Simulated assay, not measured.
Amino acid sequence: MSTNGPQAPSDFDFILGDWTVRHEKLDGIFSGADTWTTFDGLSSTRTILGGFGNVEDNLLQHSTGDFRAAALRSYSVADAEWSIWWLDGRNPTALDTPVRGAFADGIGTFLAEDVLHGVPIRVRFIWDATGAEPTWQQAFSNDAGLSWETNWRMTFRRA
């Protein structure tokens, strides 16, 4: 394989390998909920596209039943941004709208415009790779980004 051209980004190298995951999901979106459901999971991430992408395979061990999901990430050299898609195994024919963004000082911020139950929303993912246990969180905004409601948090521990 040729090694000419740009070098693959190292932004997501922190998440490569096998992990146990602690999930926390808010018990209602835009409903004023303040309780969370906590459950465990497993995650395994490998590079693809010669390092310009990766795929994360997940087993989510929810109290309502286990399910699988995958995150697909790719890096655009032209835009200096990552795109992240989510594929839920319970709906295997559709990828979620991708979030796009980049890392600065170990914090990755990724945004998208989407629709939830017919209402336009903004989606935000924040990856924090600054500690020994990386974290991820998802937040939604239904007021064009003026306020955000975090609705899913994950903490990753090396398996």
Rank of each mutant, 00 (worst) to 15 (best):
D88Q: 02
A102N: 02
E149H: 03
D57R: 13
M1C: 12
T3E: 08
W152D: 02
G41S: 00
H62N: 08
S2F: 09
F140V: 03
Q138M: 14
D18E: 15
R100A: 08
E56C: 07
W152I: 04
I126V: 15
L42K: 11
S76A: 08
R90M: 09
I15D: 02
G51Y: 05
A78N: 10
G145N: 06
W136K: 02
L146P: 03
P134G: 03
A71T: 12
W36M: 05
T37Q: 14
D18T: 13
T93M: 05
I107T: 15
L87G: 03
L95I: 11
E24T: 04
T35A: 08
L72P: 04
D27L: 10
R46E: 08
N54L: 13
S10K: 08
S44G: 06
F39M: 11
E149W: 06
A70K: 08
G118M: 06
G53H: 01
G28V: 07
A102P: 01
E24H: 12
D11N: 04
T130A: 10
A104C: 09
D114E: 12
R158G: 05
G108K: 00
Q61L: 14
I126F: 01
G5Y: 00
A102D: 03
A33F: 06
D88A: 02
N58M: 14
W148P: 07
S63F: 11
V21P: 02
E24Q: 13
D66P: 06
P9D: 09
S76Q: 05
V119N: 10
S44H: 13
F14D: 00
H23I: 02
V115L: 14
V115I: 14
A69C: 13
F125S: 04
V115C: 13
V55G: 06
W82Q: 05
L116K: 09
D66W: 06
D13V: 00
S147Y: 06
I48L: 10
P98R: 03
W148D: 07
P9Q: 01
L72V: 15
T97N: 08
G106F: 03
V99C: 06
T64R: 11
T38W: 06
G106A: 07
H117R: 15
A102K: 10
G53D: 04
D18Q: 14
G118H: 11
F39G: 04
I121L: 08
L146S: 15
S2N: 13
R124L: 02
T109S: 11
D88E: 00
R73D: 01
G145M: 07
A129S: 11
W85Y: 15
W86R: 04
R22D: 15
F140D: 01
V115P: 09
T109A: 07
G51E: 01
A102E: 03
S44C: 07
V21E: 00
A94I: 12
F52Q: 06
T38H: 10
T64K: 13
T150R: 09
T130M: 11
I84C: 01
L116H: 10
T135G: 08
D13W: 00
Q7I: 12
V123I: 09
P98G: 01
G118S: 09
P134Y: 01
R124D: 00
A80M: 03
T37G: 10
L146V: 13
L146H: 12
A33C: 11
F30T: 02
